[in-house]
């Protein structure tokens, strides 16, 4: 069992939790993910690691309440324990000194997993710029943390309530326009956002990494549910990724598969609400 040591609501329906998982924390690297199960009947939920601390043995996860399983997770409190917490899974991000600026782009809760990547790239001696996108100012997460590990932070909000009005791609284009010598972009967020970022960097031939979190069951290469076409080849996000060349990923196929269980998810959420599991 894996105890919840800290819980914070970052914005409505978005939670951060610190989990006591020393053996995972010992091996975790930026870019990797974990899979958790709330209880014996629970789904296996994959989440990209938002932070880790080898000394305290803690892993930070950030998640948004979307379906029944995340609703149950959000209903857990400090002192409660998760049934399963497996990781670290997937290949770590490549951390190295670049010839130019590193730009991390995070959209929504995708900001969280860009944080350890930004930190590690900064520690590796790179100039790091973070672009953080949110629908509106109130739901922007981890801004302070991000400022501490980067050279510059650009915020975009869809409604213009904070920072640049528009999408993260506007900020990427802004950097290109001002002549920033970008050596790499790593974008994490909704699939449509990652696709847009890849489309924005393609004409400038800026190497662009995206981190995929598709439908997945085991996370160890077994189910093939997380398959994605990359450069015409079938790859599994869990063992070949989760990071891939954003210019080679077939986003269209990925987006349609993400919707596969939408109706069943609604049914399950209804079930969880009815039997009161999601209540605090």
């Amino acid at each position: 069992m894996y105890e919840i040591l800290k819980k914070e609501e970052l914005s409505p329906n978005v939670y951060a939790m610190e989990i006591d998982a020393p053996r995972v924390a010992k091996k975790a690297e930026p870019g990797q993910f974990i899979i958790l199960r709330v209880d014996e009947e629970g789904e296996r939920i994959p989440l990209t690691i938002a932070d880790f601390n080898r000394e305290t043995g803690r892993i930070l996860i950030v998640f948004q309440v979307i379906g029944a399983s995340t609703m149950k997770l959000a209903a857990m409190e400090v002192g409660d324990s998760l049934r399963d917490f497996v990781g670290p899974l997937g290949h770590p991000s490549e951390i190295r000194k670049l010839d130019g600026t590193m730009v991390v782009v995070g959209g929504g809760i995708g900001v969280a997993p860009t944080y350890p990547i930004a930190r590690a790239m900064h520690e590796a001696g790179n100039k790091v710029i973070a672009i953080m996108g949110a629908k509106t100012k109130d739901i922007l997460i981890m801004e302070e943390e991000m400022r501490q590990v980067t050279d510059e932070v650009l915020v975009t909000t869809d409604d213009g309530s904070y920072g640049i009005k528009g999408f993260v791609t506007n900020a990427v284009e802004e950097l290109v326009r001002r002549g920033e010598k970008i050596a790499q972009v790593t974008a994490i967020g909704p699939v449509i956002m990652m696709k847009s970022v890849a489309d924005a960097t393609r004409p400038h031939a800026i190497p662009t990494v995206v981190s995929l979190n598709p439908i997945m069951v085991d996370g160890t290469g077994m189910c093939g549910g997380c398959r994605v076409t990359v450069g015409g080849e079938t790859k599994f996000a869990c063992v070949d990724g989760p990071e891939f060349d954003g210019h080679a990923v077939d986003f269209k196929g990925l987006m349609s598969r993400q919707r596969m269980y939408r109706d069943l998810e609604a049914e399950e959420k209804e079930h969880v609400c009815r039997i009161g599991l999601g209540r605090k």
Partner: peptide
């Protein structure tokens, strides 16, 4: 093979048996 409704047997059976 990317379409929704396509499973590997492993995924299909894992969902049913293990999960």
């Amino acid at each position: 093979e990317d379409l929704s409704g396509v499973y590997s047997a492993n995924e299909f059976l894992t969902r049913c048996n293990l999960m």
